[in-house]
């Protein structure tokens, strides 16, 4: 007969945080179940669907489990997790940049091959979006991905990035310019960007 694992039913973020602070394994499982998909999405928005995604997602939750005492406002649990995810993704981008002399063009930076049907076009468009993002500075890339791909509100982007709203607006403005300039060289994106790109 298998081991019976009691379910943790926090009811609210405050209760969940209290359980995490008590190092309750049930609370840790509940955190992952409740917020795992969201954190995965934030990482994927910033980095693209990437082979390192499982490792990074794992790192975010380990950091959350161990750093839960640093969370001052339990109601801000979700945005706190987003900020850890952004921090982790940024570190990953910087690490890759440092190692980029080993390989100047990565797998994920390269275009998808031709494909038939709408799915192929979307796959190609997605890969070219990330090819463009790969050429941008990390902060601008992150801001762009969270705002335009994930659709976060400006305040959410600012919180996730740990900067002020004014700063994130400046970053986004710059990101927008960079993206549009680079996207003009991407035929696969013209269908969607048209004259504006």
């Amino acid at each position: 007969m298998g081991q019976v694992i009691p379910l943790f039913a926090p009811g609210s973020d405050e209760a969940l945080v209290a359980g995490l602070r008590a190092r309750d394994p049930g609370a840790q499982r509940a955190l992952f179940e409740q917020h795992g998909p969201y954190v995965q999405r934030v990482l994927a928005r910033v980095l693209g669907v990437d082979a390192e995604l499982p490792d990074l997602l794992h790192d975010v939750f380990i950091e959350a489990y161990e750093g839960i005492d640093r969370l001052s406002d339990p109601k801000a649990l979700k945005s706190w997790l987003a900020s850890i995810a952004v921090f982790t993704a940024r570190a990953c981008l910087r690490r890759r940049k440092r190692r980029s002399w080993l390989r100047f063009v990565g797998w994920d930076e390269l275009p998808e091959p031709p494909s038939t049907g709408a799915t192929g076009e979307m796959t190609l468009a997605l890969s070219r979006v990330y090819a463009v993002l790969n050429g941008m500075p990390e902060d601008e890339r992150i801001a762009f991905a969270l705002r335009y791909i994930d659709g976060m509100e400006l305040t959410e982007v600012a919180e996730a990035c740990g900067v002020s709203l004014a700063t994130i607006k400046r970053k986004l403005s710059r990101a927008q310019e960079l993206f549009q300039a680079r996207a003009q060289r991407e035929p696969a994106l013209q269908r969607w960007l048209g004259g504006e790109a």
């Binding site: 994927a44 928005r45 997605l126 335009y148 994930d150 969607w192 048209g194």
Partner: peptide, 22 residues
């Protein structure tokens, strides 16, 4: 800062495709 609608549209397409892959 003016945010072009088409960037949101492209972002939405990218997000949908990415969600499908995920």
């Amino acid at each position: 800062m003016t945010e072009p609608t088409k960037l949101f549209e492209l972002g939405q397409i990218a997000a949908e495709e990415q969600d499908r892959q995920l």
